[in-house]
Design a protein around this nucleic acid. Structure first.
Length: 435
RNA sequence: GGAGAGGUGGCCGAGAGGCCGAAGGCGCUCGCCUGCUAAGCGAGUGUACGGGUAACACUGUACCGAGGGUUCGAAUCCCUCCCUCUCCGCCA
């Protein structure tokens, strides 16, 4: 229905902007981990313009002469023109073939460039350079050694990694009884909060999406290896609900009064976690399939900064209500993801690990995804369309929240006290005990 | 999965090789008119990329589901794919 082909998709960075501000872009990207070679870009771009100009000139000629031929009743008078146009058509074909090749290369280059990061981002190369902006809550002190959630969960009979491994393989989990109920309670609690108090519209999107959708948010073409894929048809399992939610209005032009739009969705998420061998091999922290409640916004360009703060606050509210201590990290340039211009992570306190661990990532992608997915708006009916700004954040990763509930609520006897906010969703249950 | 019918502008809907970026209607925008948020009248009304301008004007190219082909010339003909609808089968 909105069937734009992949090659027509707009580049992630404005090609004109790139042409005119090559040094700014190069400098910005150099501060991240990008190794893009901009000399190819300049070569390809000037070649493209050359070919395009030549082709369009010939097409103008062809259109003009063909119209003339059409008006001439006696075709014998235009024999020569017809013959000449055969050659012109041929030339056009060759030019267009070359042009197509150049454009494909240019497109591939552009689609593999990450977003520019905001000037206000902390400098740095990786996780160690992220800046803590605030803490909430005080980690509880235990008069016993707090256990990791996998121990608690297995002892309580609510988590079963062994059998999940039998059913599928490593990095899958099976929840049982109160464990399954707790996961479901968390999902409902989060969705109710965001829809009833934070103004989000709940969505249940497809969990399988096509290539265009994956390209729109930036997973493709660069990160195909991280995605689960189906061969027939050519679909991908979503690694986050951000993908379908942000693509909802792909190829559309919205009215300004439709903005901002807030979407939330619970979905399972599927990730190959390639290259993470040996990391977080136990428990629920890093799985091939996990549950997440996602928050996505479209807004006016001038509002995306404050919208990010609000979105972050919406995610933090979940932890506040559950009484789980956390801190907020301002990600440095080198640690920010491919599509984001600015990112704040929320890290929850996990007593079993004695560390803060990521439970949410909230990003402002500005017009990067809107450009790739061609999502625009019009300020008024007579004005030109502009790209929206798109934001996303976890609100929250459900499995990791369950980990935090277990580890923070654990008692000396191995039972777990359920946070009060969750009890209405647990049929009043106050404590999980061995089943 | 089998059989058939279709996909045209924001929407409805004509067009069946050249005069078609595309009739007509609806909607929308601007103006007029009418002493009551109705009706009427007139004009305008897609997107992208390029040239041009102080800015308009103007102008070139492309786009009638997508991709390829035939032709001097394709919304119109041919091929492939996608999607929608109807009937049958199957199923939650």
């Amino acid at each position: 229905m909105f069937g734009e082909s992949l090659t027509e998709a707009l580049p992630m960075l404005d090609i004109k902007y790139l042409r005119d501000h090559l040094d700014t872009v190069r400098e910005n990207l150099a501060r991240q981990k990008s190794t893009a070679d901009f000399s190819v870009f300049s070569t390809l771009e000037s070649r493209r313009r050359e070919l395009l100009g030549a082709s369009e000139q010939l097409k103008a000629e062809k259109n003009r002469v063909s119209a003339l031929i059409g008006k001439t009743k006696d075709k014998s008078q235009v024999r020569g023109e017809i013959e000449r146009m055969k050659e012109v058509s041929n030339e056009i074909k060759h030019l267009d073939d070359d042009l197509k090749q150049v454009e494909d290369e240019l497109q591939a280059f552009l689609l593999n460039l990450p977003n520019l990061t905001e000037e206000s981002c902390p400098p740095g190369e990786g996780e160690a350079d992220n800046v803590e902006v605030r803490r909430w809550g005080t980690p509880k002190s235990f008069d016993f050694t707090p256990r990791p959630h996998w121990e608690l969960g297995e002892n309580l009979g609510i988590l079963d990694f062994e059998r999940a491994g039998k059913l599928t393989g490593a990095r899958f989990a099976l929840y049982r009884g109160a464990g399954a109920r707790l996961e479901r309670a968390l999902i409902n609690f989060m969705l109710d909060l965001h829809t009833q108090e934070h103004g989000y519209t709940e969505i249940i999107p497809p969990f399988l999406v096509n290539r265009e959708t994956m390209t729109g948010t930036g997973q493709l073409p660069k990160f195909e290896a991280d995605l689960f894929h189906t061969d027939d048809p050519d679909y991908f399992l979503i690694p986050t609900a951000e993908v379908p939610l942000t693509n909802i209005h792909r190829g559309e032009i919205l009215a300004a009064d439709e903005l901002p739009r807030y979407f939330t969705a619970y979905t399972p998420c599927f990730r190959k976690e390639a290259g993470s061998y040996g990391k977080d091999v136990r428990g629920l922290i890093r799985l091939h399939q996990f549950n997440k409640v996602e928050l996505v916004k479209y807004c006016l360009p001038e509002d995306s900064g404050t919208e990010l703060e609000k979105l972050l606050a919406n995610a933090e509210e979940v932890l506040k209500r559950l009484g789980l201590p956390y801190r907020v990290m301002d990600l440095c340039r080198g640690d920010i993801g491919f599509s984001a211009a600015r990112t704040f992570d929320i890290e929850v306190w996990l007593p079993g690990q004695g560390a803060y661990r990521e439970i949410s990532s909230c990003s402002n992608c500005r017009d990067f995804q809107a450009r790739r997915a061609n999502i625009r708006f019009r300020r008024s009916p007579q004005e030109k369309p502009e790209f929206v700004h798109a934001l996303n954040g976890s609100g929250l990763a459900v499995g990791r929240t369950l980990v935090a509930v277990l580890e923070n609520g654990q008692q000396a006897d191995g039972s777990v006290v359920i946070p009060e906010a969750l009890r209405p969703y647990m049929n009043g249950m106050e404590k999980i005990e061995k089943q």
